[in-house]
Design a binder for these strands. Structure first.
Length: 587
RNA sequence: GACUCAGUAGCUCAGUAGGUAGAGCACAUCCCUUUUAAGGAUGGGGUCCUGGGUUCGAAUCCCAGCUGGGUCACCA
């Protein structure tokens, strides 16, 4: 029997033809463990009493502490030297070395636990539990001297092997597709990935604590909305069967939070997943996290102070300093942040003072600056274009851009002193918008007119103009106190705070195209039924024909060539069938 | 959506003016009681992303597609 087929014959499960050599070895080990009485997936709890990090932080030989530790983790490397071995396990806090001596874990005559279980049946990636004591090796490495070792979970798939020495990493898994589709593997083998996500949670916890200290209330509002309001974006649409109505995944939660301010809360906030059916790139994922907060009796100037205090606090909580590395730049989140009006920004970066300019004048300015326009653009849109093209990218250090044109801000209160503007700010960091805030529009008549303006835009073909939310207007008509609200992109904030330039690196599971699922494989019997000799079945599977049905769709000549070619190429030594025989198989 | 780069062993990657597919780690077998990214020896493992085309011959050249990355466009 040719070597190549031995692995296929050990199993008769239908999927076995798909397995790599190493996966087959591991499945064999799994069975052998059971044969010698070791359950590879035991049920009882395993009473861990310490983490590897705690031992590293606190072990002192002179104190003689950590002499009865119980730790559990994933086996990450192994160096076997006869009757003694070194290995590393990794728990949620890091890695630690193990020292295992044959005669200590096998005090009796039977040395199977060491010779069979540890040396042969255990694999890198298996999850084990150990009992032992801490000590330093002659090389000065903190190590656990193992007294007992036990199986907690068998790993059937080989992990990528990543090695490291003196901070230098070897053979790191860098393939983006692999890392995002199998984030669980990324987390196991790339420690800095875990760190990013720990920081992400710390950012959220710091913000939450900041809000709660001031007595603001964390709330939840609907994700399924019948009118997707509060922002301009294309929504995802779904359908509710019982009500037989379309529902939309929220693009924002603004209008619901304001309803709660109407209802009498002084401050409400929500960490919210929003969904937008638009393009994906380094800074956009279809679902993303936003924190929105609304505080009664405040205005946007108060909110600027509040926002910079919050962000400075986050930076300090994470880094102990306000200076944060981002790519080749250092961003300083020390408050106060610079404040620049939109008109000042445009004047500074283009030389044009556009205050009081008409739409036609703005259009001419755009032409001079080389900015493309189209006739549907109104005054606000033109100003927004100029800012976006010529100014935005210049604001690397945190800067509040304030006082936006009214046309771009349908939910914002009109400016207290300047005609045509609103009381709005955006916080720019590294040339990107990080936060957006207003003095909220609470005049229900003005709000209705703004919605109607949006409706007209929609009728002109702008598919992103806002819908009119009649219930929201009804709420405003009961009276909403003067309120300031702010929204901040948590994914972007995390990118800035963790020095990641892609949103995919701050989301555990970024959106990907679905993987093609491997086709099921017909079992041997199906192939035998149509007269194919057993020794040819693996060959047929290897050339990509997984099902008997596939054989009906292939040309006989190609099939004949392929299987004989495979036989020759791999030196299987099989006797090639005749063309007549093959024709019968496929008949 | 446009342009562009990439896809070779479980992982990281070589490779060829078209001519039998390579390394390191991992894996298997054997030797070794304090090793350090990797002790020594031997060995197994590939639909070179998929499908067409050119050719005596394609992993390599051409076309199309799939998946991913980057840039741009669109968009908060």
């Amino acid at each position: 029997m040719p070597e190549i087929f031995k692995k296929f014959l050990k199993f008769d499960k239908m999927s076995i033809a798909e397995l790599s050599e190493q996966e087959i070895v591991r499945r064999n080990s799994l069975q052998k463990m059971r044969d010698i009485g070791i359950e590879p997936y035991p049920a009882p709890e395993f009473p861990v009493n310490v983490t590897t990090q705690e031992i590293k932080d606190n072990y002192k030989p002179e104190l003689n502490n950590y002499q009865a530790v119980i730790v559990a983790g994933r086996l990450m490397s192994r160096r076997i030297m006869g009757k003694a071995s070194f290995a590393e396990i990794q728990d949620s806090t890091g890695r630690i070395q193990l020292y295992i001596s044959r005669d200590e874990i096998c005090p009796d005559e039977n040395k199977d636990l060491y010779n069979e279980f540890f040396k042969k049946l255990l694999d890198i990636g298996d999850i084990i539990g150990i009992k032992g004591y801490a000590f330093f090796t002659q090389m000065g490495e903190l190590t656990i001297h193992v007294k007992e070792i036990g199986m907690l979970s068998k790993s059937l798939r080989p992990l990528p092997i990543v090695k490291e020495k003196d901070g230098q990493t070897f053979d790191a898994v860098t393939d983006a597709e692999f890392r995002y589709r199998q984030r669980y593997v990324d987390l196991i083998v790339n420690p800095q990935v875990k760190d990013t996500f720990l920081k992400r949670t710390k950012i959220i916890n710091t913000m939450r604590q900041f809000f709660n200290e001031q007595g603001y209330l964390e709330v939840e509002t609907p994700i399924l909305q019948s009118i997707p309001g509060g922002a301009t974006a294309r929504p995802f649409i779904t359908h509710h069967n019982a009500l037989n109505i379309p529902l939309y995944l929220r693009i924002a939660n603004e209008l619901y939070l304001k309803r709660l301010i109407v209802g009498g809360f002084d401050g409400v906030y929500e960490f919210a997943k929003d969904f937008r059916n638009e393009g994906m790139d380094r800074t956009h994922n279809p679902e993303f996290t936003v924190m929105e907060i609304y505080v009664a009796y405040k205005d946007y100037k108060w909110m600027m102070n509040f926002t910079e205090e919050m962000i400075e606090r986050v930076a300090l909580a994470l880094h102990g300093t306000t200076e944060v590395q981002l790519g080749d730049k250092v961003i300083n989140f020390k408050r106060p942040f610079k404040r620049v009006t939109m008109y000042e920004a445009i004047k500074e970066h283009t030389g044009f003072d556009i205050a009081g300019n008409t739409e036609d004048e703005l259009r001419d300015i755009c032409k001079t600056l080389g900015i493309e326009t189209d006739p549907t653009m109104g005054k606000g849109k033109l100003i927004d274009e100029i800012f976006g093209e010529k100014c935005e990218h210049n604001y690397v250090q945190p800067t509040f851009i304030i006082d936006y044109p009214v046309e771009m801000s349908p939910l914002t209160k009109k400016h207290r002193s300047v005609e045509g503007l609103t009381e709005r700010f955006e916080l720019m960091v590294n040339g990107k918008e990080l936060a957006n805030a207003y003095s909220e529009l609470n005049d229900p008549i003005d709000q209705r007119e703004r919605f109607e303006d949006q409706l007209r835009l929609s009728e002109k073909g702008d598919d992103e103009a806002m819908f009119i939310d009649q219930d929201f207007l009804r709420a405003l008509e009961y009276g909403m106190p003067p309120t300031s609200g702010m929204g901040i992109g948590i994914d972007r904030l995390t990118m800035f705070m963790t020095n990641n330039l892609s949103i995919q690196d701050v989301l555990f599971f970024p959106q990907m195209k679905p993987e093609k699922t491997a086709e099921a494989v017909d079992p041997d019997e199906k192939f035998l039924e149509i007269g194919i000799p057993a020794e040819w079945i693996p060959v047929i599977r290897q050339i990509g024909l997984k099902k008997v049905k596939d054989l009906k769709e292939i040309k006989i000549g190609k099939f004949f060539n392929d299987i004989c070619g495979f036989n020759k190429k791999n030196k299987l030594g099989l006797n090639n069938p005749t063309l007549e025989e093959v024709t019968k198989w496929l008949a």
